Simulated assay, not measured.
Amino acid sequence: MSSPARSIHDSRSTLAVPATPGSSMPASAMPAPLRVVEKTHNEPCTETFGAGVLTSDELLHELPNPEPLLRNLGRSVFEAMAGVREVEQMARWIAPDVFSGLLARVQHAARARRIRGRSARRPMIETKTCLWQSPRAGVVEATVLVDLGLRVRAVVIRLEAFRGRWRAEKLHVL
């Protein structure tokens, strides 16, 4: 009995493996060959592997709704400055330069608490309003109003698309 495929017998199942790659596989079952796209240093790459290039409207639909992230970042900044949240917990959602600036501000707040002899206490924080707009695809600019009890503060955040998610590229506490 001669066949182009040999069988591998197992106590559970039988699997047919082609004798040589592509010899007995139908053309529809063959994987598509990869295309290599050459790109010079100054010209933008217009082709990608997979789904293709996303237009600006498709890019906005692929990214999650930014409002929950904006509200959480606004609250988390004040929790970090109060000493009840580690800045490292926000590292995934903020750019490295924003992280270092926020870390310096948190360390300054901790030093001020230590000088005054106060301990870190969890503040009563309520996010009042989150206003955001998208000036172009993949960018969101927002103002988050946070009620700290005695006063209301604002956090201005600029989110940009980064690897299929939002990341804060700018963050200012007003």
Score class of each variant (00 low, 15 high):
Arg151Trp: 05
Ala161Met: 04
Ala104Met: 11
Ala109Met: 10
Leu171Ala: 03
Lys128Ala: 13
Ala120Ile: 01
Thr129Leu: 13
Leu148Val: 07
Ile157Cys: 03
Ala112Thr: 04
Ala161Ile: 01
Ala161Asn: 09
Pro66Ser: 14
Arg167Asp: 02
Leu15Gln: 12
Pro96Trp: 01
Leu131Arg: 15
Arg167Ser: 03
Met30Glu: 10
Glu79Ser: 08
Phe78Ile: 15
Asn72Lys: 08
Val37Gln: 13
Pro26Met: 10
Leu60Ala: 03
Leu148Phe: 01
Arg114Trp: 10
Glu88Pro: 07
Arg35Met: 11
Gly52Asn: 09
Leu103Gly: 03
Arg122Thr: 14
Val87Met: 06
Leu148Arg: 12
Leu73Cys: 04
Gly22Ala: 04
Ala91Tyr: 00
Thr20Asp: 12
Met81Tyr: 05
Trp132Tyr: 05
Ala95Asn: 09
Glu58Ile: 14
Arg122Trp: 02
Asp10Lys: 13
Arg121Asn: 15
Ala112Pro: 00
Leu145Pro: 03
Ala112Gln: 08
His9Leu: 11
Glu86Asp: 05
Thr129Ile: 07
Ile115Trp: 02
Leu150Arg: 14
Arg111Gln: 14
Gly22Ile: 00
Glu62Asn: 12
Ser76Met: 06
Glu62Thr: 08
His108Ile: 06
Leu59Met: 14
Thr46Phe: 07
Trp93Asn: 12
Glu169Val: 14
Ser119Gly: 04
Ala82Trp: 03
Ser11Ala: 08
Arg113Leu: 07
Ala109Asn: 04
Arg114Tyr: 12
Ser3Ile: 01
Val146Gln: 02
Leu159Gly: 01
Ala161Tyr: 07
Trp166Gly: 01
Arg163Tyr: 15
Arg105Lys: 13
Ser76Arg: 05
Val155Ser: 01
Ser76Val: 01
Val140Trp: 01
Ser3Phe: 08
His61Lys: 06
Thr127Arg: 15
Ala5Gly: 11
Thr40Phe: 04
Leu174Gly: 04
Thr127Gln: 02
Gly52Lys: 14
Thr143Lys: 00
Lys39Thr: 08
Met81Lys: 09
Ala27Trp: 04
Ser7Leu: 13
Arg116Pro: 00
Arg111Ile: 13
Leu171Arg: 02
Asp57Ile: 13
Pro123Phe: 02
Ala5Trp: 05
Val106Gly: 00
Val98Lys: 00
Thr46Ile: 06
Arg12His: 15
Ala16Pro: 08
Gln133Trp: 04
Arg114His: 14
Glu79Val: 06
Pro26Ser: 11
Asp57Arg: 12
Pro135His: 08
Asp147Gln: 05
Ser2Met: 07
Pro123Asn: 07
Asn72Leu: 08
